[in-house]
Design a protein around this nucleic acid. Structure first.
Lengths: 119, 119
DNA sequence: TCGTCATTTCGCGAATTGACGATATGATTT
DNA sequence: AAATCATATCGTCAATTCGCGAAATGACGA
């Protein structure tokens, strides 16, 4: 079933449908789009605050501390993972989430370069 | 009526309800939240591509080039302006929009510092 | 293998967003 | 002041998102 599906998801950081050397408009990668959608939500922003200082939390811990249902927590955490903001690993029967610093920084770079070309 | 409401909107870049020297969790500013919401939409991303290379466009030009209705264009452009991504000025009876490079860069910095503390 | 615990997935109603046409507001020209 | 043009706002409906409980899947231990 639902293995933590991180780690690989086609590196392809840009999905421009043009030749290699094209300076013009470049679309955002799907991952960066997912990143923006994930962080655009207030409740997910609130969840992220739980992961300050490298904290590592299980799904039910997040549910409890955020005051939301367990299934809701699972779904929201999955969205944050798809956006490259969180990372997860299974530890026995629980799944531990934590901030994915590298993922975040790489997405930020993608975002910055996009904005520099279109703005 | 609806004057282009940019330029000032309380500088307050951070809305943490804590003392000055607090290293802990810091919430995103409202402007940065608006930025994320604005860019999280595919159609608005598409609109942004029209503003590459410093192009300056009126509402109806955007509507035409993006293939959307005039009122829709006006509303979407207003959202992008609230997010600090676009800037606008009135030129006679038309309103010209263009990318707000400085706004974008300052929001990006805010975003980066937020992510560095929470991740 | 069965039971239990943690997580994911599913189905659903409520709330939000997206796009549109119609209408109102502002600015310019006559 | 009236006509015109560009934009902003409003009302509406379709589509998407949110949060939940229920049910399915996985992992572990008795």
């Amino acid at each position: 079933m639902g293995e933590p599906t991180n780690s690989q998801e086609v590196a392809a950081s840009l999905t421009g449908a043009r030749g290699p050397e094209s300076p013009g408009p470049v679309e955002l990668s799907e991952r960066t789009h997912d990143f923006l959608k994930a962080l655009a939500s207030s409740s997910r922003q609130r969840i992220m605050l739980l992961f300050a200082q490298g904290a590592e939390l299980s799904v039910s811990e997040v549910a409890e501390r955020a005051g939301i249902g367990q299934s809701t927590a699972s779904e929201q955490l999955a969205l944050l993972r798809r956006g490259g903001i969180l990372d997860s690993r299974r530890e026995g029967k629980i799944v531990l989430y934590r901030a994915d610093r590298d993922g975040v920084l790489s997405v930020l770079d993608d975002l910055r370069s996009y904005l520099l070309t279109c703005c």
